[in-house]
Design a binder for these strands. Structure first.
Length: 532
RNA sequence: GAGGAUGUAGCUCAGUAGGUAGAGCAACGGCCUUUUAAGCCGUGGGUCCUGGGUUCGAGUCCCAGCAUCCUCACCA
């Protein structure tokens, strides 16, 4: 590190600011590539097209009086050629003070090397930020998972695929927002700090407001506030909402996560199924539809290279490791206009309409019991090691469902009509009080979304919130919220409501195995000894 | 919360049987005007996760702890 400080100070001694300043008229490395392509250069040619680029030096080769850098910016990278003869002695002295990881600006002309690599031949080099820490090794990059999350900024500039994931995440959220706005929804923001939590079954985080001397909860869901807006006459609302649940961490759970939650007056849960399909289609069009074919093209390039250099066996291994077969299937399906992605080696077809399957029918198929046959349900649960003691029947049924059915829900599927007792905020089937008009959307065995025909009868709502269902954790119980019930007493239109997990949607559409791969800064314990 | 795995140089990793701590990349010095993980010669760089213990001697064996990952549990 000291060596780097010495070079930084040497730059300052040359009268230059090692931390730069404004550097105007920069074009991206991608722009340089498209300009370069249009110039139609032969190997060894130099054009007279002058450009300014800026970025981080990620590869550096100096040989005597000639040097090549690879400069990375937000969109890609480009090779910089630096020759002492072109730059002059002062600039060359500066070049020798540059290290991997430094951020520089380069003004130069577009050309090609003898080996046909597009290159910006530098005329003027400007230091924009000297790095005091070296970037990770150029070949393996940063692969230590712990470090990748703790120093996500390094992960992002060292591993371009990581940046791609978060770029796609941004595009997907934008597309979801556009879809909903196009359906006349209004985007709203409701409290994160809530005096009372509700809208989901989860343990909350607690906090405290000093001046009011009042305990508050971080929201586990925006549901009860969004429904108040329905009462207020905002007929179609949505919120892209960060929720906080004080529970276990896993590859599918982060304590804070993002959901899009929406409510539509005069609709029901069938309409919400269409909304799921619509949002996923929009997100797909903004990401996988173009990203996946490009990914396949890259994989096939790599495959050909391996075949030539290392033989068929190595190529075969590579193809299997990267699930190339599923990717090709998805690429071909996309060409046919289908919404197909790949997750964990399996091609998933998101093309609407998704299959709609009844909860009770799935239980019959996979657990082999009828949902109405209490004895059979209990027997099956016991056989699977689920202890039915102190649990309401609906909870046992749900445990059974999770143990037997969920792992079969690979292709995108709507499961609908849940046991009413585990759905305190859901309207009952008018023909069967034990059934709640609710569905969950599944894909790759993950719960992607959850929706209801919303309960708007205030008296039933009050009763549901007061009624304790046994078998679920005490703290995750629905909490009585009198203000919310009072809102319903003013009259809430019948409505469909829906929540879709954005993080999981991004996982599915980017083939990311862990939720931490799609959250920029997932929660980690602080490390005892920090830094260098 | 339970089980398993991992923790060694800035990064990626070796470390044999318990006997002075290693490689590649990065960095420093030298040579080098077309490199593609550039090359060659040389140099510097370590709290072997932490704390105990066994031993003449511990990166290595034992105990405890910490962090991360995976599986399970919890969690719609």
């Amino acid at each position: 590190m000291d060596q780097r400080r010495i070079k930084r100070d040497a730059v300052a001694d040359m009268g230059l600011d090692p931390y730069g300043g404004r550097y105007a008229h920069v074009v991206s490395t991608q722009d340089v590539r498209s300009t370069g392509a249009s110039l139609d250069l032969a190997p060894g040619d130099k054009s007279d097209a002058s450009v300014r680029v800026a970025g981080r030096i990620m590869l550096l080769r100096v040989m005597g009086k000639l040097a090549f850098f690879r400069l990375h910016d937000g969109e890609g990278h480009i090779q910089i050629g630096l020759s002492r003869a072109d730059l002059g002695d002062d600039q060359w002295l500066l070049v020798k003070k540059l290290l991997l990881g430094d951020i520089i600006g380069v003004e130069g002309i577009i050309g090609k090397t003898r080996t046909d690599e597009l290159t910006v031949w530098a005329r003027q080099v400007t230091v924009l930020s000297k790095a005091l820490r070296a970037p990770p090794e150029k070949w393996h990059g940063l692969s230590d998972v712990d470090l990748r999350y703790r120093r996500r900024y390094v992960d992002l500039f060292a591993n371009p695929q990581v940046r791609d994931v978060f770029r796609l995440r941004s595009s997907m959220i934008h597309a979801v927002r556009q879809y909903l706005v196009g359906e006349c929804y209004v985007e709203v923001e409701t409290p994160v700090l809530q005096p009372m939590y509700g809208g989901a079954a989860a343990r909350p985080f607690t906090t405290h407001h000093n001046t009011l001397d009042m305990d508050l909860f971080l929201r586990i869901s925006p549901e009860l506030y969004l429904k108040r807006l329905l009462v207020g006459g905002m007929d179609r609302v949505f919120e892209i909402s960060r929720n906080f649940r004080n529970e276990g961490i896993s590859t599918k759970h982060n304590p804070e996560f993002t959901m899009v939650e929406l409510y539509e007056a005069y609709a029901d849960y069938h309409v919400m199924m269409e909304r799921v399909e619509g949002m996923v289609a929009a997100a797909f069009a903004a990401s996988t539809k173009t990203a996946l074919p490009m990914q396949v093209a890259r994989l096939e390039d790599e495959l050909r290279r391996l075949q030539e250099e290392k033989g068929e066996a190595a190529a075969q291994e590579f193809a299997e490791e990267h699930h190339l077969e599923a990717y090709r299937e998805a690429r071909d399906a996309i060409k046919q206009g289908r919404l197909m992605g790949v997750y964990n080696g399996v091609a998933l077809d998101f093309t609407p309409p998704w299959p709609r399957l009844k909860y009770a029918d799935l239980l019959q198929t996979h657990a082999g019991v009828s949902i109405t046959d209490r004895a059979a349900v209990h027997a099956k649960a016991k056989a699977l090691g689920i202890d039915p003691a102190n649990k309401a029947d609906a909870v046992i049924i749900n445990d059974l469902f999770e143990a037997t059915v969920e792992r079969h829900l690979i292709q995108p599927t709507f499961v609908y009509d849940y046991p009413a007792a585990i759905c305190p905020l859901t309207r009952r089937d008018p023909n069967d009080a034990l059934i709640a008009l609710r569905f969950e959307a599944f894909a790759a065995t993950m719960e992607l979304g959850n929706a209801y025909s919303e309960l708007n009868d205030p008296d039933i709502q009050r009763e549901n919130l007061l009624h304790k269902i046994t078998g679920e954790g005490d703290e995750t119980m629905a909490v009585m919220d009198e203000d919310f019930v009072m809102a319903l007493e003013y009259g809430m239109p019948p409505a469909g409501g829906l929540g879709v997990g954005i993080d999981r949607l991004v996982m599915l559409l980017t083939d990311s195995p862990s939720i931490r791969d799609v959250i920029l800064f997932p929660l980690q314990r602080p490390q005892a000894s920090g830094g260098s």
